[in-house]
Structures are given as C-alpha cells and as structure tokens.
Simulated scan of single mutants.
Amino acid sequence: MTATRSKLDLQEDQRVNVSKAEAVSCMVAIFERLGNTPEVARCVAEHLAETSLSGMESHGVMRTLQYAEQMQNGYLSVGVDTQVIRAPSGATHVDGGGGIGIPAMVQAYETGMQMAVRTGVSALAIRNVGHTGRHGAFADKAGQEGFLTICVGGGNRKNWPQVAPHGGAKGLLPTNPWCIGIPGGARGPVVLDFATSKIAGGWIYAARSAGAQLPDGCLIDRDGNPSRDPEAYFSGGAILPAGGHKGYGLALMGEMIGEAMLGPSSTECNWLLVTLRCDHFRETSAMEVAAEAVLSDMRNCPPAPGFDCVEVPGERERDQYVKSGDRIAIPKATWRQIQELEAGLKA
C-alpha cells in the first residue's frame, strides 16, 4: 500500500484497508438488495472499487452511500435496462432508463467504438441516467483499443445548481465534466478527466461522510465567503469554477450542448460522446512513436519548486492501481456506514 493521495484532510490512522474483493462483495449485496439486477450491481461495484484503487476517492467506494440513498428515495430507478435507440433523424441515443449511469456509459463507449470502426468517427447522446462514474476509466479503455474519445455532460442545472459562475456568489451550474482520452506512447493512453468546478462534487460528499475538511479555495458559503466546511455547501453554498473564467466557460459550453442541443435532461446530465478511430488518420505505430516523443518531453521537464516531476494525465491513476495491491484505504467512518447499510438491508 502507498500513502493515500486525497483532498480530504485525514490522517492514515483514520482509514481502514479493505480488500477489493471484500468491498465489491459488500457493494454488490447492497445494490442487489435495493432491487438492481446482478449484472448492474456487479458492474457498478467493480467500477467503484477500481476507481478507489486508482486513487479517485471522490468517485469510488464512498459513492455507494449516495447511490443507495438515491435508489431508496426513488431518484434512481432500479431493475432497468440500458437501450440503444436509433432516432428517425439518424442520431444514436443510449437511454439509461433513469437508473445509475455507469452501465449506460459502458454501453455508450462500446457502441461509439463499434460505430467508429465502420465510419472512422461517431457521435451519440447518453440520456436518462444517474451518476455515470469515473469517465477516465472508460476513456482509458477506449484509448487502449485505439480510439480518441471526447465526452461532455450538461443540463439539469435547475436540480443541480452546484457551481457559481465566475464572478458570481450563487450556484447556478452543474459540475459539467469533460473527458478526453487518446492512445499515448509506451505507458498507455493519455486521459484528461475533469469537472469544470474547482473540486468534484463527490469530494464534498466524501468529506461530509468522513467528517473531514476540504482544501482552501474550493467552496463559498451561502453569503459568498470562502469555506472549507462541506456543510457550507449543503447549507446553500456553492463550488467555485476551476480556473476562474475558463472553468466557467467550459461549464457553460457543457450546458449549451447538454440542454440547448440535446434537449431537457432527466435525472442528471445529458452527455455527448464523440469517438474517432485513430488509425483512420495515422498508422498506429507511427502515432505511438510521435506520442511518446511528446510525452517524453513533458516527463523530462525540470520540476518546479514544490513538485517531484511533471506528470502525464492518466498515468497517475494507472500507477496507483498497480501500487494499491488490490487494497483500498477507506475512511473508517465511511466504511462503517457502508457496512451498517448492508447489515440494515439484510435484516
């Protein structure tokens, strides 16, 4: 095990090491008892565990608590199937049936790649889904199979007014993520997966669950004042946009695509996924050599004060997964809540 890289202000002795197998077994039991099919329960549990093992705590095992609450209160549908729909206009839509969005996003990436094999490029919409997990995992897989993918989400800002626009003191936008993945060099794909907010919404839920504070400069309270307390967000505060006007601009573009172009969204965001077959443009080995030259220049850059090295997006997550030894360092308070949830559903 390596030290946990986290935005939560927690000491290592406030965490418990849980094997991937134990975590998956517990989560599968929870999701099945809440009415999901065994296939959906396994898909979601494996995704959450692998996300935690990759060091992305905000989108990992702790999400079990949020998903379970949403399934219990009817926000998320259970026992539903994902459907691929061809519209009369020729557009392709992946419909998640109002359920958890991870299986729908798996289907969307697979469909997008299948379409791009035939035509070189494809575009499809993903609708009617709940939270769709860590998009970097899907983009990484597509990159390994030779595809460039661009995915952006937006819409439903009336139900998810989480992020203040640049210069504003009130949450008006969702976190509207972007994810871009492309085949890289010798160390695998380059994957850029980010919320347009200063911090992903999942970190706020993770901090609340663990009883932790958040980093400076991420939140404002209901009066527009800076705060590190996750409860400030739940009491009418907001997340700040990443990079000021640039994050706000990307979030606004996500809203224009997700709502103005794709139409009214239900549950959470609408998504647009564009997939390109890279060897349609350049032979695979030549692209890999050129990519490695670019990435080597980045890695060999002298580090600035306070940094150990220059990193390539996507490599940290893959390295962390290998170093994890299939053991997840979960905040003790969070793991206790998950175990209590499983026990309560069993009763």
Rank of each mutant, 00 (worst) to 15 (best):
E50R: 15
T51H: 08
S52I: 13
L53H: 05
S58Q: 12
H59G: 04
G60E: 09
G60K: 13
V61Q: 08
M62C: 12
M62K: 14
T64W: 09
L65S: 08
Q66S: 14
Y67T: 11
A68F: 06
Q70E: 12
M71P: 00
M71N: 07
Q72G: 08
N73W: 05
G74F: 07
G74E: 08
L76D: 02
L76Y: 15
S77T: 11
S77W: 00
V80W: 04
V80G: 01
T82V: 15
T82K: 04
T82G: 01
Q83C: 05
V84R: 13
I85S: 05
I85P: 00
P88D: 09
S89K: 09
T92L: 11
T92H: 04
H93W: 12
D95G: 03
G96M: 07
G99Y: 01
G101Y: 02
I102R: 04
A104P: 01
A104D: 02
Q107W: 00
T111S: 01
M113Q: 05
V117Y: 06
T119Y: 06
G120C: 07
S122M: 09
A123W: 02
L124A: 02
R127W: 01
N128D: 09
V129T: 15
V129M: 07
G130Y: 08
G130C: 08
H131D: 08
G136F: 06
A137L: 12
F138G: 00
D140K: 15
K141M: 10
G143A: 12
G143R: 13
G143Y: 09
Q144K: 15
F147L: 03
F147R: 01
L148F: 10
I150H: 02
G153M: 07
N156E: 06
K158M: 07
N159S: 12
N159E: 11
N159I: 04
N159P: 00
W160Q: 12
W160M: 13
P161Y: 04
G167H: 06
G167A: 06
G167P: 00
A169Y: 07
G171M: 10
G171A: 11
L172T: 11
L173Y: 11
N176G: 09
W178P: 00
C179S: 11
I182Y: 04
I182R: 04
G184L: 12
